[in-house]
Design a protein around this nucleic acid. Structure first.
Lengths: 179, 179
DNA sequence: GTTGCCATGTAAGGTGTTACATGATTTA
DNA sequence: TAAATCATGTAACACCTTACATGGCAAC
């Protein structure tokens, strides 16, 4: 249930609408979500029921009313408590490794073709994240220099994960060519 | 739906029971699954319905019958096709980064306490994976030297992901102390 | 004239986890 | 005497994604 706390976190910075949150999450490198609708809107409804946020409705002409959510003091303390709780381990889901495990019996050119595709995809992702970071970092909260630094390091974290993956596949290609 | 292909992969090596598969998956560094029951048994039933595997029932005294699954030629070609298909990007799910994003406003000692806990957890995980690799690698299929090398590199992949995470948090601790 | 932005939401399905259930045999 | 091993399975729930639905306005 990270999305809940991700939302509460953003609201601890400023009041936002669901639409704002969706945009920020899909623009940000720090949050891996697809920024999908369903979860954001339903989580906001749930947080409202639980008293974690208040809702202010702003009617608009020709458009659905904007619903601006503000964190309550109860929400604030729930967030603070979570922030201080024991960290979770990262989860790496790498379907490609399953594929590779059973691709080991392909012939050399086919195996290398597969590895080359993976290398290419990782590279593209790295370029994309770099670009996203450049544009997205202006939207981050930077209330203190430490906060700014930490958000940079969060983006950096994902970049390094992909960079490590890239280095790994490149090494594998070099060595597998010799076997 | 990786579990489906993970299972078919193992069965392309040798016939196995659900119980065998569960043990292998939780012993292996190459497969990240919890090795949870439900999915393995239900997936085997599904693969059987789809004609990807055949089932041989071996009754036992005092124990439930063993059900030994064998890959059919149809299953074999479905697996081969998947193995040659376009690779998926890895997915990194790091709840800690969300936590950290909103922990940036804690005071220095509290923030460092959190980072220290994360560093410790990653370290433990690394030690655990190293141990698992040492013990688990004997169970891997190693029909050719290339297959052996690839399976080693798959285990290595996870180790490097955690190692990169460790280096990242250590750098962050050093730098955050100065801000 | 099609695409994209604003802004809300619903429905359905896939994926994955935790916990429960049985029950004899071996090991610490 | 408690726990782990063997071996199957079910039930309930949490999480997450994709696709669908509305509809006006601005930009290219």
């Amino acid at each position: 249930m990270d999305i809940k706390y991700a939302i509460m976190g953003f609201l601890s910075w400023q009041p936002f609408t669901g639409y704002d949150l969706k945009k920020m999450m899909s623009a940000s490198t720090a949050f891996y979500w697809s920024g999908n609708n369903n979860q954001i809107y339903t989580t906001l409804v749930q947080l409202h029921r639980e008293g974690m946020v208040t809702q202010e409705i702003q009617p608009q002409e020709h458009l659905p009313s904007r619903k601006i959510y503000t964190l309550t003091s109860g929400g604030r303390s729930a967030l603070d408590e979570w922030v201080r709780s024991a960290p979770e381990l990262p989860v790496f889901k790498k379907t490609f490794l399953v594929q590779l495990a059973w691709a080991a019996r392909l012939d050399k050119p086919e195996l290398d073709g597969l590895l080359a595709k993976y290398e290419y995809e990782i590279n593209m992702q790295l370029l994309m994240l770099n670009e996203k970071k450049r544009r997205g970092d202006e939207l981050n909260p930077a209330r203190t220099s430490r906060e700014k630094y930490i958000w940079e390091m969060i983006s950096e974290n994902y970049l390094r994960s992909y960079a490590a993956e890239l280095a790994w596949v490149q090494e594998l290609r070099r060595e597998a060519a010799l076997k």
